[in-house]
């Protein structure tokens, strides 16, 4: 991959808080991430990990009134979008970054035909194109029959709706598609179809993808690299083969065991003890420490820096089990850039 061109998406130490009735909630806590042209990246986390907040922050979709980016920068193709206002966002969404969601129905207009919705998206982003023709192309691209242009969203099945929403997003000709749990609401067989479609689309269009999911099986088959996020912090990242082959962080290890439904000699399932984190408390240390089987005194006191693990230099972790390198900043840059 080229090091010269800026990544299509870069987050640098982004911290974001929500104001709620129960007090401030830190949804992202110094999260960093990079997506390069053409890459397929997985962002793995459980509910409340901040993975959807991160995705929404990239497109300025978090509510302006109750959320605030406290620190860090978000760069889309080198352009700083951290402080864009809602009005500035209006013209900036869709290209070069578009997004699809878990529940397509709430993002499709219920009283407008599918073809019309795709056409509107085209008119907004590429007004000079021949719209009719382009709608047909896009439907073909997501493997929907042309006749569906005249259908309303409620007439479609869950899988077809997700395809329709994809067509709306692709009308913006994105260079990066963010897919937030795109198959969670679908059956396994439909899920497999949508994942295959996403793979084809990426190959055909050379588009990058940031796939947000809690399902490690999907990431392992669909993504080249992944980031593991917990309580608003990215704890581990690297090439899929490296992270899956030798997960470093105890949380990642536990997550993989849980996903495989591993059982020990007594026939018991592998577990991660304790409860999911309470984001209201801003702990100084590693957010996973209270549940971590290997927690040490340092873990509660401070968040460790970045350590490169493995041979390839493309796998990094933030955990006190792996003492940080001398020049952590340089390491971080190296790994994020790879």
């Amino acid at each position: 991959m080229s090091r010269e061109a800026p990544p299509i998406l870069r987050l640098q130490d982004v911290s974001l808080t929500f104001r709620t009735r129960a007090g401030a909630v830190r949804a992202l806590n110094g999260a960093s991430l990079a997506v390069h042209e053409g890459e397929a990246i997985g962002l793995v986390g459980e509910s409340g990990s901040g993975k959807s907040t991160l995705a929404r922050a990239v497109l300025g979709l978090n509510p302006e009134r109750s959320s605030r980016i406290e620190a860090g920068r978000i760069l889309i193709a080198g352009r700083d979008v951290t402080r864009l206002s809602q009005a500035e966002w209006e013209g900036a969404r869709g290209h070069p970054v578009a997004m699809v969601f878990q529940d397509p129905l709430s993002f499709l207009n219920p009283i407008m035909r599918i073809g019309r919705q795709i056409a509107e998206s085209i008119e907004r982003h590429a007004p000079d194109r021949r719209v009719e023709e382009r709608v047909g192309e896009l439907l073909a691209l997501v493997k929907l029959p042309p006749s569906l242009a005249r259908a309303y969203p409620h007439e479609l099945s869950g899988g077809m709706r997700q395809r329709a929403l994809l067509a709306v997003a692709l009308a913006c000709e994105p260079r990066l598609l963010i897919a937030d749990e795109p198959t969670t609401a679908l059956d396994v067989t439909t899920q497999a179809e949508i994942l295959a479609l996403l793979r084809d689309l990426r190959e055909q269009l050379g588009m990058a993808m940031l796939l947000i999911t809690h399902d490690l099986g999907i990431v392992s088959s669909a993504c080249e690299r992944l980031y593991v996020i917990y309580a608003g912090r990215v704890l581990e990242w690297g090439r899929s083969q490296d992270v899956f082959g030798a997960p470093a962080h105890p949380y990642t290890v536990g997550l993989f065991q849980a996903a495989r439904a591993d059982r020990d000699a007594q026939g018991r399932f592998a577990t991660i003890g304790g409860e999911p984190p309470d984001l209201g408390e801003t702990a100084k240390g590693c957010p996973f420490a209270p549940r971590c089987p290997s927690a040490m005194a340092e873990c509660i006191q401070s968040m460790p820096g970045v350590t490169v693990v493995g041979e390839a230099g493309s796998h990094a972790v933030r955990c006190w089990l792996y003492p940080p390198a001398q020049d952590a900043a340089a390491t971080a840059g190296h790994v994020f850039g790879s």
């Binding site: 459980e46 490690l216 065991q257 439904a261 592998a270």
Partner: peptide
């Protein structure tokens, strides 16, 4: 959540 599955199982 994935991390809670083992406990419930």
């Amino acid at each position: 959540d994935v991390s809670m599955r083992g406990q419930v199982l």
